[in-house]
Computed example of a mutant assay.
Amino acid sequence: MNQPVQRALDEVRSRAEALGFDSFGVTAATARPDLPAKLNRALAAGWHGDMDWMAETEERRGAPQALWSEARSIIVLGMNYGPQSDPLALLEEKSLGTISVYARNRDYHEIIKGKLKELAGLLSRRTGAEVKVFVDTAPVMEKPLAEAAGLGWQGKHSVLVSRQFGSWLFLGAIFTDADLPLDSPHAENCGSCTKCLDICPTNAFPAPFKLDARRCLAYLSVEHKGPIPLEFRVPMGNRIYGCDDCLAVCPWNKFASVSREVRLQGRAEFERPELADLVGLDDPGFRALFAGSPIKRIGHARFLRNVLIAIGNSGDRHLLEAAIAQLDSREPVVRGAAVWAVRKLAPQRANALEAQYLPNEADADVRTEWTVALDD
Rank of each mutant, 00 (worst) to 15 (best):
A129T: 06
V131N: 09
V131E: 12
K132L: 15
F134R: 11
V135K: 03
D136N: 15
T137N: 14
P139H: 07
P139A: 08
P139S: 09
P139T: 10
V140E: 03
V140N: 09
V140A: 05
M141H: 09
M141I: 13
E142I: 04
E142R: 05
K143Q: 12
A146F: 04
A146K: 01
G150A: 08
L151D: 00
L151R: 03
G152S: 11
W153Y: 11
Q154N: 15
G155R: 07
K156L: 09
K156C: 05
H157E: 07
H157C: 10
V159T: 13
V159R: 14
L160F: 12
Q164P: 04
F165C: 14
G166T: 09
S167T: 15
S167N: 10
L171D: 00
A173R: 01
A173F: 02
I174M: 08
F175E: 06
T176K: 12
D177V: 06
A178D: 00
A178M: 05
L180F: 14
L180P: 01
P181C: 06
P181N: 06
L182Q: 11
L182I: 13
S184N: 13
S184H: 11
P185S: 13
H186P: 01
H186I: 03
G191Q: 14
G191H: 14
G191T: 14
S192L: 14
T194K: 11
K195Q: 14
L197R: 00
I199K: 02
I199L: 10
C200Q: 12
T202I: 05
T202F: 11
T202K: 12
N203L: 13
F205S: 04
A207T: 05
A207I: 04
A207P: 02
L211Y: 00
D212I: 02
A213S: 11
A213F: 01
R215V: 01
C216K: 01
L217T: 05
L217G: 08
L217R: 06
Y219W: 12
S221Q: 00
V222P: 00
E223F: 10
H224E: 09
H224G: 11
K225H: 14
G226H: 14
G226D: 15
P227F: 13
I228M: 15
P229D: 13
L230Y: 06
E231G: 10
F232P: 00
F232C: 01
R233S: 13
R233A: 07
V234P: 04
R239C: 05
I240T: 06
I240R: 02
Y241C: 02
G242C: 07
G242E: 04
C243V: 03
D244P: 03
D244Y: 01
D245P: 02
L247V: 11
A248L: 03
V249E: 05
V249K: 04
V249A: 08
V249D: 05
C250D: 07
C250N: 06
